[in-house]
Design a protein around this nucleic acid. Sequence first.
DNA 1: GAATCTCTTCAATATTTCAAGATAACGGAA
DNA 2: TTCCGTTATCTTGAAATATTGAAGAGATTC
Lengths: 228, 228
Amino acid sequence: MKRILIVEDDPAILTGLETILKEEQYEVLTAMDGEKGYREARKEEIALIILDIMLPKKNGMDVCRDLRKDGVGIPILMLTSKKEEMDEVMGFEVGANDYVTKPFSPQRLLARIRNLLRPGNVRDKEVAEYAFQNVSLDFKRLEGSKNGVPFELSAKEFEVLKYFIIHEGEVISRDTLLDDVWGYESFPTTRTVDNYILSIRKKIEDNPSQPRHLLTVHTVGYKFVKEG
Amino acid sequence: MKRILIVEDDPAILTGLETILKEEQYEVLTAMDGEKGYREARKEEIALIILDIMLPKKNGMDVCRDLRKDGVGIPILMLTSKKEEMDEVMGFEVGANDYVTKPFSPQRLLARIRNLLRPGNVRDKEVAEYAFQNVSLDFKRLEGSKNGVPFELSAKEFEVLKYFIIHEGEVISRDTLLDDVWGYESFPTTRTVDNYILSIRKKIEDNPSQPRHLLTVHTVGYKFVKEG
DNA sequence: GAATCTCTTCAATATTTCAAGATAACGGAA
DNA sequence: TTCCGTTATCTTGAAATATTGAAGAGATTC
């Protein structure tokens, strides 16, 4: 039985998560502050950590960063809330493997968990940098370069691109992207997504009208592939 | 047309919701107390339930819990009011899929509904990957390969093929396929089905005119077999 | 108050879906 | 077996639908 550590200070969310995870036959450990979470993660044999960002004593990002510094490679799923959107990017830099924006549905969370626990599918994006073909990205500085020529992406463009990179190869629908990157509380249209795609393509693709990385999947959405 | 059941005792909210949903082309059923809601949910074919927590006779959480106990897996969206915020996550424990806090904007509600109704969000018997003979398919990435050579299928071709794979070995009539894959609202001819079969064969069969997987059953329909 | 970022709108363009018709294959009856 | 009506295959092209890309309005940030 796989063991999951939940680090979350809101008791309602904590018990809610605990229940649904136990129903899915996971063994659950809990911690209600960052320090305890960090100790548990170091002490126990754990398959995955669900880590809130806002935590007493030591925040989720510090916990994550410190664990990575210690060489702990366990998949970490971050829980972020709306106001912390800007911090999501940090979570990436900090070494988290994926994130879910609150409020989330159990289905979505479970899907992410199953994904992270699938053998060989651990996305170890522990670095703040990512490179493919002739493009390299620095998520900490929000900069990139293509063939050594630097370019800039806005914060949101970076988030969108990051989302695609985290879910490399998967087809992502516009609605999913809106929910996960824009969040539940804003309502741009799916056209907006298209425009972000276009604008990102202009920067990362050699020939934006014949994309090799950020591909259209007609009637469904888009997907990112590392090698075209 | 997707059918939504609203269980809500406040007539103002109820009619408001009904109007919004009908505008969005949903079919709407209503119930004004928990017991009636429960009965409706069990009796009718429903795509989603919008369930208030405070209800006469039987409260929303009990309705939800009981439905889940009965094995009803329909997505349930809970309506909670401000004071119950702390209990929001209880919805998870109880088996709801998501919740909206009153007062809510129509946009927000619709966003949640679309989210819950989106295929793949509710856990159904999803095929993620599938392989037979020299062909492998990835339904999440919407790509396939034959003898290691990648090929592409359109979204609908994938759906048709998936339907055959799920019903492996069964003979499927053209009409059944139209009803199940195309749905009741569209009316293509049975010739269209033939075209899809043709086009899928071109991609997955070594010799499309002598199919070994997607077989014709004369005068009846087609069937998929893994090994020919 | 300028500059940048975000989002919407709309026409052009591309892809997919579907139907119709010609040809080939099938299967039962003589 | 051969014939003939029925069913399936496959090509082609038009209609429906989706995506692209530019331009501009509105919001935010510095």
